[in-house]
Write a protein that binds this DNA or RNA. Structure first.
Lengths: 193, 193
DNA sequence: AATCTTACTTACTAGTAGGTAAGTACGTCA
DNA sequence: TGACGTACTTACCTACTAGTAAGTAAGATT
């Protein structure tokens, strides 16, 4: 066990915190090693020690974000609530991100998708797949329990939910108006009623 | 009247064509003067002659895009169709863009909003305002004619329509699957039925 | 006590970014 | 015919990009 470090916070972890926030606001191509290092008050080289390349940093960013998202989904599942409440809680995750004046990390990276290295692209697809699969399951649960209904397959209904939330975030951020996401969420839930 | 040039195509206009396509695919921060000049087979300096700064090029890009969008909206209005058909035609504009494997220019720029110069930010807001205002009018028309209904104000219903279409484009592009936008459109129209 | 590992710093590289100054070819117009 | 405007090119500049090589201080391991 290594002591001495990690007393306040691991530099790698702090780098991810800073980079995550910056990327959620400016995009991956709008953030440089110098930006992140500057806010951390270390050199660029120190950052390269922890993340050899920008692609590696990007991958780590997506993977940590995905892991945290999965934990949030699990926590929703453990709440013992009905399907509509789960969808509502799901939308709440997005609203929390937006309230911090950030875009969904993977929604932001989706815009820049074509410029990103393959491992990052794959990690982004994985994020959306996990979300779709979780929503698909909840929508099916609700359909069978009679607490909600949806047109077409649960999978495509899940895709529409994600699209609507990502789009509402994207546009709401322009106006710094989280209310737009709330309105979109309400309409989404009404649609499933 | 200046002849001699403009025989095949004005360089400034061709530059906008190339830059538009590149920005819709890679984002504004993912495109350089060298990229655009390269595809046009002129020097960067020639590009700077037509657009002194990147910010100016960006503004011109948004303004031309907005003008064309306005023309498309006018053309829908002149079709003499009912409100639901107008919304459907509106969604068709987005689908056409996506089929060219492009993101909506202003949806893309919305992601990068925080990194863009003020004049570009204002031009982006104007684009969305024009769209909201047009949709708001059509939604009101439909409500009064009894051809469609919406919850809440026409303005916020209009905002949800735009958000959904932009979000569906953003996500559909990842999978190169225009069908996702079509499904979202269908749900949007069903919601207004 | 010597060595190894971790977590850095300093100093540098090559490449690219946006932008500019000066010159040029060419068509228009007085 | 000469001057002017348009539409460029060549050559360059500064700032910044990601990335690297070499060195160092301090704690852990043998």
């Amino acid at each position: 066990m290594k002591l001495g470090q990690t007393v306040v916070a691991d530099t790698a972890e702090r780098a991810l915190d800073v980079a995550e926030q910056l990327v959620q606001v400016r995009g991956f191509n709008g953030v440089s090693y110098a930006d992140v290092a500057g806010e951390l008050d270390v050199t660029k080289a120190a950052l390269h020690y922890h993340f050899a390349t920008k692609a590696e940093l990007g991958e780590a960013l997506i993977n940590r974000y995905t892991t945290r998202f999965e934990a949030a989904l699990e926590s929703i599942d453990e709440g013992g609530i009905d399907a509509p409440s789960k969808i509502s809680a799901y939308a709440g995750i997005y609203l929390d991100v937006l309230r911090q004046q950030r875009m969904c990390l993977c929604g932001m990276l989706a815009a820049e998708y074509q410029t990103l290295p393959l491992p990052m692209q794959q990690a982004i697809l994985r994020f959306f797949d996990i979300n779709e699969t979780w929503l698909e399951r909840v929508l099916n649960e609700g359909q069978h329990a009679g607490t909600l209904r949806h047109r077409g397959s649960a999978r495509s209904a899940a895709q529409v939910v994600i699209s609507t939330l990502e789009g509402a975030m994207l546009v709401a951020r322009l106006h710094d108006d989280p209310n737009r996401l709330e309105v979109a969420t309400k309409q989404l839930l009404a649609e499933l009623d």
